[in-house]
Amino acid sequence: MQQLIYFFRKFKYFLLFVLLEIVAFIFTIQHHSYHKSKFINSANSITGGIYNSANSVQEFFQLKKDNRLLIEEITTLKNSINTVNINKTRDSFKLYNSDKFRQKYQYTFAKVINNNFTNRNNTLTINKGLNQGVTSDLGVINSNGIIGVTNSTSKNYTTVLSILNNSSKINARLKNSNHFGTLTWDGEDYNILQLIDIPRQAQIKNGDTIITGGKSAIFPEGINIGIVNSFKFENNQYKTINIELFNDMSNLGYVQIVKNLERTEQLTLEKESANE
């Protein structure tokens, strides 16, 4: 017993060091597994608040660009309204039944108050949280394309797992065919992502558009991602397909959060059929 106390006294700094280092290591491991970074994140009120007030200054300098984005989006939306009207005059609305008008996706807007894109694993912080109905596993997009998936939430803030992250795997497909693959990031260039697991039957050319595939229960189908920048075809297989994003991930202002209202239904069904 005496010797034990002596031992602890002699090595108390070393023991303290090892203890704290283990704590840090546990946090790091949790951080590398998606959905477990519950404790260390910037979604709490102190860090969120500081980012929010710092951002209100930066926001002022972005007004010009934000206005232009808004007017572009309004123009696209107006164009789509016109197409709907044309359909009505052709009496095609008779074909619709009430099932078709059920709302599947609900959109909420939020502002990015912290954004990084230079690390290996990047995250964003946005200024909406549980109070505004934002939960984890919702898609985050803007008018140019996808941005990420929500991760941890607090009352007023949410962290978003950026597509520029090692754990981010998003279902994507070619616009002109139904061959789908997974979108990942190798950590090199924040404008270039990699599409993997594309079957070799797919016909790919440089400049082809890549959109989200409807396989996941997070993103709606058909949201723009980017265009094929370059690819390698070796041994009758696609090796790496580099996708250049439409979005400038270094410059994000307002974003939209997509909530799939039928997600639980879809997941329960998929789980049930997997068990059978």
């Binding site: 704290l20 280092e21 840090a24 790091t28 951080h31 709490n44 690390n119 995250t123």
Partner: peptide
């Protein structure tokens, strides 16, 4: 350790900065 952890809180990086600073 706390200094590193504070940076980790802000940059969503788990315990990376805390471990290295310690």
């Amino acid at each position: 350790f706390l200094l590193g952890l504070t940076i980790d809180f802000f940059s969503n990086s788990g315990g990376i900065n805390a471990g290295a600073t310690l």
